[in-house]
Design a protein around this nucleic acid. Structure first.
Lengths: 167, 167
DNA sequence: TACTTTGTTTAGAACATTCTAAACGTTCTA
DNA sequence: TAGAACGTTTAGAATGTTCTAAACAAAGTA
């Protein structure tokens, strides 16, 4: 059943997937877990993954749930076993894209909040500023507006992504 | 010239930009440096940035060049000074997008190479496999083809991005 | 040539992340 | 109810990243 050549290919594939995981802001292990499930024609239990990837039970547990959170895997029930089994969500591309989108959106929105705050702060102190300082404040305001415009563009764009990429 | 309120706003803005830098796979300091230049109406020298951000000269030197590499800033020559001065590339959005694109593309291409290698390796050993193993090898091949398809989609999409977002 | 100014490189410190191992809690089984 | 089988949590180890400080290199100035 176990062929060393086939196993080697699988192991190297998971390794590459691990690097992709890191790039996506997840951990290496998350990527490896997904790859292992992606290359399996049946659901796998934690013990198996621990064995295959040579990782600890704790790490497997934590990371598989992280992966679940991102919609990368789902728990499946296997009759006759008390273990948790998992299978890969086959829609890999969607997972990757969602990971990206929410990552960007999160940060963009966080920034939006900050900018609003700054603009208010500027307006508040504007009157007490010298002519020179007023000029600077005005300059800042323009820059902030520019950032906001950028955020709007990004948000609009993110909304288009799924439509465009799944045509 | 220095107004504490204005300075506070600038400092908080650079702080947020630092977090954005991290999200983009650059360092915090890179983000902060860009923000500082972005909010300045004149080119700044390294000493000034060291002073403002309370970072070391070495860090400033290394990170400003990283930023330069990504097209975020450019060196400008200021008459009467031997120092290097920098100014922000005003096209922030383009920088961010380029950063993303090349980051993804790099990884996708790296993966493509790996997949090709795997497919060749599979073809090579195919004959020496048992019936059961052959089935597994076939299964792997299908999966690899799926990954390749995904990569093609992503590449196509990345080519569209600039057209769509700058309309 | 000696000194100053400026930017770069690098060894190691500080920090953040992610892993492991072990303790723990829960649920099932005998 | 005792023990086994699992998954989860957590303290600390291992690892990786990015910073600082200091030595260094280069190039101008006196």
């Amino acid at each position: 059943m176990e062929n060393p050549e086939l196993d080697k290919i699988r192991d190297e594939f998971t390794e590459i997937a691990g690097q992709l995981g890191v790039r996506l802001g997840l951990s290496r292990t998350v990527g490896q877990l997904y790859a292992l499930l992606f290359l399996s024609d049946e659901p796998l239990c934690l013990d198996y993954m621990v064995e295959r990837l040579k990782i600890s039970k704790g790490s497997a547990s934590t990371n598989i749930r992280e992966l679940e959170k991102w919609g990368g895997v789902r728990k499946v029930w296997v009759k006759g076993s008390r273990k948790d089994f998992y299978e890969a969500n086959p829609d890999t591309l969607k997972i990757v894209i969602n990971r990206f989108k929410s990552g960007i959106q999160e940060r963009v929105n966080e920034m939006s909040g900050g900018i609003d705050k700054f603009e208010k702060a500027l307006s508040k102190i504007e009157n007490s500023l010298s002519v020179e300082e007023k000029k600077k404040a005005q300059f800042y305001k323009e820059k902030f507006r520019k950032v906001k415009k950028m955020q709007t563009l990004i948000n609009t764009f993110l909304k288009i992504i799924p439509k465009k990429i799944f045509l």
